[in-house]
Amino acid sequence: MRLTVNGQPVETNAPPGQLLIDLLRADLGLTGTKEACSVGVCGACTVLLDGRMVASCLALAAQAEGADVVTVEGLADDERLDPIQEAFLERGGLQCGICTPGQLVAARSLLNANPAPSEDDAKRWMMGNLCRCTGYYQILEAIAAASQGEA
């Protein structure tokens, strides 16, 4: 099957039982996407599938056939960080970093859908991405900062 991952065409022989996260991490070496809860709750495995965020731990690789997948590795553009990545760095939106790839992909998809989210919008959108380090405050600040930069 064919798909596009971070703008690159990919051809793979994924067995039917392969999950999208395993295709990304094991076959393509894109270990930025993390697995934590494995049941779609924590958000560490969040990727964009045709522009919408999904849980790659619950998606079959087969569901990505012909699709455009974006992972955390695809956010930066030629060494230039995405503004949401910059904002997370500046505002302390990350600590241990294990949830960060998922947070960033989710935040990116929020800003794509809603370039000027209210705090309440951001809290609702991001509630599917658990973080145990930051208590979320600085993540929400980072999103607000990035949104102001983009608005």
Binding site: T31, G32, V72, L81, L94
Partner: peptide, 21 residues
């Protein structure tokens, strides 16, 4: 001060144990 490991972590380059090849 932004984290010294921040760029590695926001780009997905930072390797955790499960990521070690």
């Amino acid at each position: 001060t932004p984290r010294v490991d921040g760029v590695a972590k926001v780009t997905g380059a930072a390797r955790y144990v499960a990521d070690q090849p």
